[in-house]
Design a protein around this nucleic acid. Structure first.
Length: 442
RNA sequence: GUGGGCGUAGCUCAACGGUAGAGCACUGGACUGUGGCUCCAGCUGUUGCGGGUUCGAUUCCCGUCGCUCACCCCA
């Protein structure tokens, strides 16, 4: 008899109960926070036409990372590598009929064909939170506040993570008007800035100087990471035109608003935040672990002004983030933030019913029927093993109390209720049992 | 696609040329209806796969597959 491998496909995960509890814990905090902010949950198809990613998401995401399937009609479909194009497609259908701004969230499963490693698998859960239909950067402030509440719900403190933000428009203006990068090379420099953290300083400098042999431009590129106040880039000869650019005004105002709303403890301006997805046009942001153990961004997001145009004549702007459930799980593990009660199944108020022999099985069934009818969760041992064995199983499964059903109990319409922790036990009539169990065990 | 590490019992790992082992888990018993501690017994293996060197390979060499970490990219 040939055996198939018991392991799942590379990059795909089996979620055993004790692991799934942790993922669900993270998701629960998303649901809680969303409810607190008035966001409604939506969901969409796992398969989408490949073109909707090809148009705006970025070449690599589509060409190398997309799972592409061809259906029987010959259409090229992709297992969604991200949720935002689906969101844009859905919003296009209802944008004229729903009140704005639209506050929606989802926790989709997404797929990317990449080499798995710490914090990255091929099938992954990603919470998406978006607000559409308002151009105000107060939307970004709300998103930052959302992130802070979410992290607080998880037990993280503000010294453990940081929201870092910048702006595409600001960076483009800065590069063009202050640094002196030719228009046709801004994409190249963006990539360079994005990659800076990953290279040794000397290596980065060498790369920059080789790319821009003309010294002044290289000097300025090398100093881009140094400044914390977008209103005051520490570069010589900042032209007035830069201060009048939309990118400058928008980001400087936002930077002030971050401070005014008390978010500056968790959110900082960082000119090196670029983001990989092509559709971002305005303020972009990432959330990082402050420590070094988790390099990968926990969240990534930004504002997209042109995404709706793929599906609608009516333009609509939006901003939002994707958050990896797995990366957040690693963060929680790193800082010891997982609640202790996640280590065992939830058995609050539940009882394990031990049945000593087949002769009492009908009575035992009546016992669990009665309990469940009164809303008391219970599990019946089906093996008639010796009592010690059944008590062990009850404990291993996380039950605090066991109702023992044997010959005497069956005859008298009772059970013996035992509390495992102390070992105390009492005889309880079947009619009194649900009420007795609804009191907390001691 | 590139580079490092690792593949031995269900799990975690030892043995590093000379008869494949331990702990945990599991099963039975000491203890016929009372668990956690202890003790006894039992169970599980083509040492990932293929080839080479050798009297002899889990061990050394080559290939291959798988896992993992890092790079690229990203949640």
């Amino acid at each position: 008899m040939p055996r198939f491998p018991a392991q799942p496909q590379k990059g795909f995960c089996d979620y055993f109960p004790e692991v799934l509890r942790v993922f669900r814990h993270v998701e629960r905090q998303i649901h809680r926070t969303a409810a607190l902010f008035g966001y409604e949950e939506y969901d969409g198809p796992t398969l989408e036409p490949l073109e909707i990613y090809a148009a705006k998401s970025g070449e690599e995401l589509v060409r190398e990372q997309a799972y592409v399937v061809r259906d029987k009609g010959g259409r090229e479909l992709a297992l969604r590598p991200e949720m935002t194009p689906t969101l844009a497609r859905m919003v296009a259908q209802v944008q004229k009929s729903v009140p704005r701004p639209i506050r929606w969230y989802s926790i989709p499963t997404c797929f990317r064909f990449e080499r798995p490693q710490r914090g990255r698998v091929r099938e992954f859960g990603q919470a998406n939170v978006d607000i559409l239909g308002t151009a105000s950067s107060d939307a970004e402030l709300e998103i930052f506040s959302f992130i802070r509440h979410f992290m607080e719900n998880l037990g993280a403190n503000r010294d453990q993570y940081r929201i870092r933000y910048s702006s595409r428009r600001y960076l483009d203006a800065l590069l063009a008007q202050v640094v002196g990068v030719p228009a046709d090379r801004t994409v190249e420099v963006r990539k360079m800035i994005d990659r800076r953290d990953k290279l040794a300083p000397a290596e980065f400098e060498k790369w920059v100087r080789e790319t821009f042999p003309e010294g002044p431009v290289a000097d300025r590129v090398l100093r881009l990471h140094e400044f914390a106040d977008p209103a005051a880039p520490p570069l010589p000869d900042v032209p007035a035109a830069f201060r009048e650019s939309e990118g400058y005004r928008e980001l400087v105002e936002f930077h002030d608003r971050v401070r005014q709303t008390g978010l500056d403890g968790v959110a900082v301006f960082d000119p090196t935040i670029v983001r990989g997805l092509d559709y971002y046009t305005g303020i972009v942001y990432e959330v990082h672990d402050v420590g070094t153990e988790n390099r990968r961004a926990l969240f990534g997001g930004g504002r997209y002004d042109n995404l709706l145009e793929l599906f609608s004549n009516e333009p609509m702007t939006g901003t939002g983030f994707g958050m990896g459930i797995l990366t957040v799980k690693l963060f929680l593990e790193t800082y010891g933030l997982l609640p202790a009660d996640l280590s065992s199944p939830p058995r609050a108020g539940a009882v394990y019913v031990a049945c000593l022999s087949a002769a009492q099985r009908s009575y035992a069934f009546a016992v669990v029927e009665r309990l469940r009818g009164r809303g008391v969760p219970c599990e019946l041992d089906l093996d008639f093993a010796k009592l010690g064995r059944q008590l062990q199983r009850a404990e291993a499964k996380g039950y605090a109390r066991v109702a023992i059903v044997g010959e005497d109990e069956a005859r008298q319409g009772q059970v013996t209720l035992k509390t495992l922790a102390g070992g105390a036990q009492e005889t309880v009539g079947l009619d009194d049992l649900p009420a007795r169990l609804s009191r907390p065990e001691r």
